[in-house]
Design a protein around this nucleic acid. Structure first.
Lengths: 223, 223
DNA sequence: GAGCGCCGATACCTCCGATGTATCGGCCCA
DNA sequence: TGGGCCGATACATCGGAGGTATCGGCGCTC
């Protein structure tokens, strides 16, 4: 194994074992390189790799720190990876989202609070009757993000966030080519919100399923 | 932005735009560095980072290539990230798995073929009546992996693969401390297999849910 | 003529030392 | 006491040198 890969494993080991805790500062490059028995250049490769996936946070002039290691932060790297997938796998991502999103929405139904509900309603109202497609899709993302955050599961939340990215383009495309997509989306959002306000998990789940399935069905028929 | 981060973005752009296709070979270090306008050292950091998340494949003495970019390969990096999470988020991972695994099992029920069913049955038979905990957990992973592969969704498959890792330790722990866990797991596997053979998606989904929920419930009561 | 091994070209691997740049915190001045 | 200057610190970037793994052509052997 290359020395850089060894260094990656060793740093990973220090974090997993607890020798380095979230927020801790690493020894400076030259010291850490000496400790691990490699050159500064090679160590920098290891640090850069870990920094790409948000394990480490490097600040010039200050030092290198372990991030909070929040699921949210770490799974953020997922969206970077997801960007590389070509359109032919969008359907698979969407299928996974169709599984997770209804479940998350149902979970949110039993624990979402008034303040969040009001915020969601205000967001829908702010959109107006004739939003542009870009506005609608942005609002769509924000709406679902708000709901999923109320599911109380941060892993689920980050995962859905990562999965939503690649399907965004598809939704824009749909909004541009399908006439009633805009009004239908707005209607479905209202329905989901009403179900959440009622605390009706099954209704929320069903509306979320319908909501995503309609995008999926359209995409499947188009490709 | 640092030159290395720019290089990462540029290489990513070349791949996403299609200028570089899966399997393509990159220009050699010195040329690529000159093209992107940075030093070889800095370029190497970028390449190393992309290689950690399986975007690039570096072969000493040969060259640097774009990987297949299969969802399976890219989401493999997920398990690396997941390793950093501490035990207190295991429950959240397990909750997500409880959503995905039943859905995947139900999908598999309608499309799994005879050969796969026979292989799964043979695998369960090979385990014997009194397996060690380690054997059981390994068999458990393999069993579910085999089923999920029959769901026909490679993204779903890789995602579950990544999520199963962190819960593995929990399952070993459970097997060691809960007496009837072994026999119960075997029984549930048989039930899932029977449902799959019947093509009964709902039964398969329910058994899968029960199967995972039992681990989750035990873990929740233990922590 | 076919197969095997040697060997040079190629490309990545590792290291070193030097210079540039951003940040922080103490010191000095108003 | 408050604000700005300035040096120490730590990461950023660079160029070059020597090492090592891989591949493929060439020549030898059978």
């Amino acid at each position: 194994m290359a020395v850089t890969d060894e260094a990656i494993e060793k740093i990973k080991g220090m974090i997993v074992s607890g020798a380095l805790r979230p927020g801790d500062r690493l020894p400076k490059e030259s010291e850490l390189a000496a400790d691990l028995g490699l050159s500064r250049n090679s160590l920098r490769e290891a640090v850069r790799a870990l920094s790409l996936i948000r394990i480490l946070d490097v600040r010039q002039g200050d030092g290198t720190y372990v991030t909070s290691l929040d699921p949210q932060l770490l799974l953020e790297a997922l969206s970077f990876v997801v960007d590389f997938h070509r359109d032919d796998t969008v359907l698979e991502f969407l299928a996974v989202r169709r599984i997770l999103e209804p479940a998350a929405t149902a979970m949110a139904a039993t624990r979402i609070d008034e303040a969040r509900l009001d915020a969601l309603a205000a967001q829908l109202d702010a959109l107006g009757a004739e939003p542009s497609v870009e506005e609608l899709v942005a609002s769509d993302l924000e709406f679902h993000r708000g709901i999923v955050q109320s599911s109380g599961n941060s892993v689920l939340c980050s995962l859905l966030d990562g999965l939503s990215g690649p399907t965004t383009r598809a939704r824009v495309w749909r909004g541009l080519t399908q006439e009633d997509a805009v009004s239908r989306t707005l209607h479905e959002h209202r329905a989901i919100l009403a179900a959440l306000r009622d605390g009706d998990a099954e209704a929320a789940r069903s509306w979320a399923t319908v909501h995503i399935a309609s995008v999926e069905q359209w995409l499947r028929s188009t490709l």
